[in-house]
Amino acid sequence: MAVPGSGRPFNLSVITPEHNVFEGPVKFLVVPAFDGEIGILRDHAPLMALLGEGTLRLVTEQGTRRFRVSGGFVQVLDNEVSVLSESAAEA
């Protein structure tokens, strides 16, 4: 039996001041929070967390992508996830 919410997509946007780095459906997301990684699936409870330095991983139908982020925060609400960071570069 799979974890509830796994395998089903939710919306993610990764936004920096300069531009939108990523926008679209993902199946799984790991963000580097200030005190360790947080994994997010569909139907995650509303969450606001500060990010530290590290790698953000997202899993889409097309595969896994990684971004280096430093600082910022993540907001989860009703299957809309926003990651805001002053820098996010594809790694």
């Binding site: 947080i38 409870a45 509303p46």
Partner: peptide, 15 residues
């Protein structure tokens, strides 16, 4: 919305 805050709403706000 009953957010979970990591670490806390105040800390997030000041960051």
């Amino acid at each position: 919305h009953n957010y979970l805050f990591e670490p806390s709403a105040e800390e997030i706000l000041t960051t």
